[in-house]
Amino acid sequence: MQVMELKTTPEDLDSKIYKMFQLGARLVVITGNDLGNGKFEIIYHFSKGAEMTNIKIEIEENRQIESVTGLFPYADIMESELLDYFGIKVAGAKPNVFLEAGSGICTPLRKEKKPEEKPKATERPKVEDSPAKDLMSVVDKKLANKGIPKGGAD
């Protein structure tokens, strides 16, 4: 398996990802990684045939990154995971897909959290239309996807 590493900046991320989209690559997953000192690494793993491309960015805590669901609609669940497990803010990502709202567990994959930094359960972003944990409603996604050509290269 050939693996390509590609480091880029958050500003340049969009164009890189769009290139992958144009190539017809498949977004395998988005990996989040706590580098400590309030820095996070986000890796977008792409696959096309036997080749893999990892696009890596590094961001500061609290920096919001753009969503890629416009190009890869199934990335919403991955972005929600970033939000749930790391507290990385992704535009439009719905919270509490993996962790129950109000359960007190939040950002479990962060490293060396100091107790006072731990955000309280009540501070977590609320779902707009609770009581239902209305997470990934298809309809709005469908609307968001309109105008984007379906399918990849072939």
């Binding site: 669940i77 749930d84 993996f98 309809v139």
Partner: peptide
């Protein structure tokens, strides 16, 4: 079915 929401976890 006209709309689907999924909860995981």
């Amino acid at each position: 079915v006209v709309d689907v929401g999924i909860t995981l976890g």
